[in-house]
């Protein structure tokens, strides 16, 4: 949860070469994700991913008031990773980030690569890595799954903000103390991440009660085949 625009980098924060560099990082990462997500092979994956991207988009579109003057919305990196897996989740979120930049000018066009790297790629990858590391706990009980989802939501939000700190260290415009910047940015996002973690956990909890077979993280390879068939 965050003020609706805080995480989208605008133009001019990073210099041109860094912007281009992270554009290339995002494109390369997406190419790997598309191949590993087998999105071009299975004619069913892409349409389904389209609907789930619409779901993530709708969740980001609707703000709800947290405090007077502060509204928040889900960012969904860990949620996408847990529900859809790290590859398809990254593809869905990257489409969301690109369309937000083109349709709403949300995030700069030159910062698009950096924004995709932070939110669509780093967020889902780190969120999934955390969830995968604790998958044993997630499979054991409902409380375990909720704890893992909370942790993944928290860590993925912090990871996305840490991505910004790294980008600023490479191509930022002023010589501010990086330690101070990292402290502020990561500190703020740790608080935001608690909200993200709570929502992620409760959402996963609601889904696991009805259709546990749809949750990528806890699906076994057999049920995954079954669902794909």
């Amino acid at each position: 949860m965050t003020a609706s625009v805080a995480m989208h980098l605008s133009d001019g924060v990073l210099d041109a070469s860094t912007s281009v560099l992270f554009g290339a990082v995002a494109v390369a990462w997406l190419a790997v994700a598309a191949a590993r997500g087998r999105i071009d092979v299975d004619d069913r994956t892409a349409p389904l991913a389209g609907l789930l991207a619409a779901f993530l988009f709708a969740m980001q579109l609707l703000n709800f008031p947290v405090l007077p003057g502060v509204s928040g919305h889900l960012y969904g990196g860990a949620l996408a990773a847990i529900l859809l897996g790290p590859w398809v989740g990254a593809l869905c979120l990257s489409v969301v980030v690109v369309i937000q930049a083109l349709l709403f000018a949300d995030g700069g066009l030159t910062a698009l690569g950096a924004n995709m790297t932070n939110m669509a790629l780093l967020g889902t990858a780190v969120g999934f890595a955390v969830a995968l590391a604790a998958r044993g706990l997630a499979r054991r009980s409902r409380a375990g799954l909720l704890a893992v989802a909370f942790l993944a939501g928290l860590v993925s939000t912090v990871a996305a903000s840490a991505g910004f700190v790294v980008e600023y260290a490479i191509g930022g415009q002023a010589d501010v103390s990086l330690g101070g910047l990292a402290g502020v940015v990561i500190g703020v996002h740790a608080v935001i991440g608690i909200g993200e973690g709570v929502i992620t956990a409760l959402a996963v909890g609601a889904i696991v009660r009805v259709r546990p077979d749809l949750i990528y993280l806890v699906r076994t390879s057999e049920t995954r085949e079954l669902v794909a068939a």
């Binding site: 779901f55 889900l74 409760l202 996963v204 909890g205 259709r211």
Partner: peptide, 12 residues
């Protein structure tokens, strides 16, 4: 969050 969970299922 519970609304989000339901919405995910409906979207799927």
């Amino acid at each position: 969050a519970r609304g989000a969970g339901t919405l995910f299922l409906r979207s799927y």
